[in-house]
């Protein structure tokens, strides 16, 4: 049994569990949207004194911060107890494409070229991590949600704004993948 769950989980099991998480949150009177936490953290850190956008009762969002803590814990558990140590099973085509960008085939879950501590401490490596995070944080709040809020919750409710946001996610993702990434890496 343990060996079975230590293998990567197939797409439909993972997708069904994500839908299950969304429905559980609705049942508990909340909704599934992770990037709200970023705004909550800005507010909890005192951002509301300077900007009206962060002036709200952030304690009402504590449940979501607890969810965030759980997500960290889940990552820890997955690595410590549920991993068989195999690298990510991506397609040969992707491995070949990434090789041309100087990214080696997976040896774990993430490429060392971008996420090793050594890379983080280099100027270019740090700049890539910082810029990526900055755009995710800025863009998710500008668009009013991220993958969970728009692509999962919003599309499940057949909301047109969420569809537009997801089209934007892909426009930006394709631009980065095909045009900018070859220049950056």
């Amino acid at each position: 049994m343990l060996e079975f769950i230590q293998q990567p989980w197939t797409w439909w099991v993972s997708g069904a569990l994500i839908a299950g998480i969304m429905f559980s949150l609705l049942f508990f009177g909340q909704s599934f949207g992770f990037s709200s936490n970023l705004r909550t953290i800005c507010s909890a850190a005192g951002g509301g004194k300077l900007l009206k956008f962060f002036d709200f009762n952030w304690r009402s969002q504590l449940w979501n911060l607890v969810f965030l803590v759980g997500a960290i814990l889940g990552g820890f558990i997955a690595h410590q107890f549920l991993s068989n140590g195999q690298p990510v099973q991506i397609s040969e085509n992707t491995i070949n494409d990434l090789a041309q960008l100087g990214i080696g085939a997976p040896t774990s879950a993430q490429p060392d070229e971008l996420f090793s501590l050594e890379s983080m401490l280099s100027l270019k490596g740090f700049a890539i991590l910082a810029l990526g995070g900055l755009m995710v944080g800025f863009g998710s709040r500008y668009a009013g949600g991220c993958t969970s809020g728009h692509a999962i919750s919003g599309l499940s409710d057949l909301q047109v704004p969420s569809l537009i946001a997801v089209i934007g996610f892909f426009a930006g993702g394709l631009l980065m993948t095909y045009v900018l990434l070859p220049l950056i890496l």
């Binding site: 997500a71 755009m135 944080g137 728009h150 537009i164 946001a165 996610f169 993702g173 990434l181």
Partner: peptide
């Protein structure tokens, strides 16, 4: 807002390989 914000988000998603949830999982 959805198109521009979403595009900026997508740029960051493809660069860092993570949206906000997966960041903390990592």
């Amino acid at each position: 807002r959805y198109l521009i914000g979403g595009t900026i988000f997508g740029l960051g998603w493809a660069l860092s390989g993570a949206c906000p949830g997966p960041m903390v999982v990592n």
